[in-house]
Amino acid sequence: MSTFEEHRRLLIGVAYRIVGSMADAEDVVQEAWLRWSGVDENEIADPKAFLVRVTSRLALDRLRWARSRRESYVGPWLPEPVGTTPDVAEHAELADSVELALLVVLETLSPLERAVFVLREAFDLPFGEIAEVIGRGEAATRQLARRAREHVREKRPRYEADRAARRRITERFIGASANGDLGALIKLLADEVTLISDSGGKARAPLRVMTGADPISRWLVSIGSEEGIARFLASVGTPPDAELSFEVAEVNGGPAAVIRAAGRVVTVASLVVMDGRIATIYLIANPDKLTRLAADQA
């Protein structure tokens, strides 16, 4: 295995956490490989550190470019979901750093704050190395890190830490939604629950954030009806009579509801559970963001 391939998974992880898109992360790592292929490996004292620095700088540039693109995005923008393996889920620091709830909060940081937060909190890089990546002094880098930590601490939802409990609630959510059980859904949802759906205008889903257990439950029941399913499947180019399957899968370090039509992933719902009830639903239905998830879980 080449030096670059040895570190590819790490570099993908760094880039994904900074940009929030696996497509962009893969592009960043490909560009990092081009940079690596142009240097003399024998002159690099620490290849891993070198590659992380190069990848981080490229990811930071890509994030700035992506932010401008997202201004014209149709509806709410959510990070691209990725399948995570049990070994990631068993390491809390790795699982926590890719949680959708955290990545959504990271979207509210400046690009520099986000890069510093990811490199320090998720990968424990020394401040001196992070300063070199972002082109700032070490004192300024520490200040950025402190500001980012405080912001994340304030905004990040305190979801249920018990993975087994989260999985049970996700299973109950799938059952109630699939069966159109309005009463069961309302009991599962917190009174002030929020539904944020990302369709990119390419699937039938709310283009604005929804709040409240009653309207969200009724929408879930309507979209799960025979007519609602047919309309949704038509919107994503899937035959209306396609066989549906529902499962709980490891997505971004935690349990999520995954819906497939004819074997193709068409929706992912990641739930933030607080005090035994669902406080936030992140629903991703943009087909462009689900192709890699299907590959991850193949």
Rank of each mutant, 00 (worst) to 15 (best):
S21Y: 09
R218P: 03
G253L: 06
E150K: 13
T3Y: 11
V236M: 05
P240R: 03
L11H: 09
V104S: 04
K48P: 09
N286R: 12
D40R: 15
I18L: 00
W36K: 00
G75V: 12
R277M: 07
G276H: 02
V74K: 13
D296Q: 07
N179T: 14
V52T: 06
F123L: 07
E43I: 15
A23R: 13
L94F: 15
M1F: 10
R9Y: 10
V118Y: 02
G263Q: 12
V133S: 01
P240E: 12
I169M: 01
E5V: 12
P79L: 07
W65R: 14
A92S: 14
V39L: 01
S177Q: 15
L188H: 05
K187V: 02
A140R: 09
A298T: 15
T3G: 02
E150L: 15
G263V: 08
E129F: 11
G128F: 06
G13M: 00
G237L: 12
E6M: 07
Y73G: 02
L34Y: 15
P206M: 04
M1N: 08
A285L: 02
A140P: 06
L11Q: 04
A15I: 05
V152G: 12
R8D: 02
W77G: 01
T211D: 11
P79R: 06
A115V: 07
A203H: 03
S245H: 07
T141S: 08
T84E: 04
W65C: 10
A23M: 07
G201M: 08
